[in-house]
Amino acid sequence: MSDSQPENLPATSAAGDAQTPGAEVIDQREGMFGVRGTGDTSGFGGLKRQVALPGGTPKPYGSWFDGAVDKLEGLAGEGAIEKVVVDRTELTLHVAREHLVSVAQHLRDDETLRFELFSGVSGVHYPQETGRELHAVYHLASITHNRRIRLEVSAPDGDAHIPSVCSVYPAADWHERETWDFFGIVFDGHPALTRIQMPDDWPGHPQRKDYPLGGIDVEYKGAVIPPPDTRRSYN
């Protein structure tokens, strides 16, 4: 039994399904409520769900995206932009990590691009995506042209190094420290990559998927409620 079309999806949704052409399957979830496989008669154990993120978008992208991407490709050279995703009116560029700093430099300095405001880094951990488990997601804004762009850079878990963009955007300082703190991504070239939110001697990187939520059991009279990450749940 396959649950590839979950029934309680909003009627209006179009994108993002495993069926959408170009979607990129990154994970397959099996079972539900903690049961797996066919031995279980409830049927939940046999459930399968593919996790598919929007894949690369073919040209033309529409709106100002084409011009900007072409310009950037010309400036940054071959292989810098691995993939362009246009999804829900937002432009995401997947950038090879060795090209990140030069891409950021061009994005900031070129007259026609001019993304001068750095909005932040957000780490995302995809443990099933072998070879590119850790993603750093940068949001940039161009005030001159009133545009927004998202850069996504990935690194394998075994070699979690991404160059720092602090030299281009000084604003990245704390954001990168935070991402290091929570995900363990090492930003090479950062002036002082230390923990920022957690205590200095904290072991581990708490917002990774393999780090438990860390809650404790809540006890009532005659009842125990486990923390949310160890409860049975929909997946």
């Binding site: 708490p206 860390g214 809650g215 923390p227």
Partner: peptide, 9 residues
């Protein structure tokens, strides 16, 4: 009691 934030932090 930690309230709604039953977590590592």
């Amino acid at each position: 009691s930690g309230g709604m934030f039953n977590n590592y932090a």
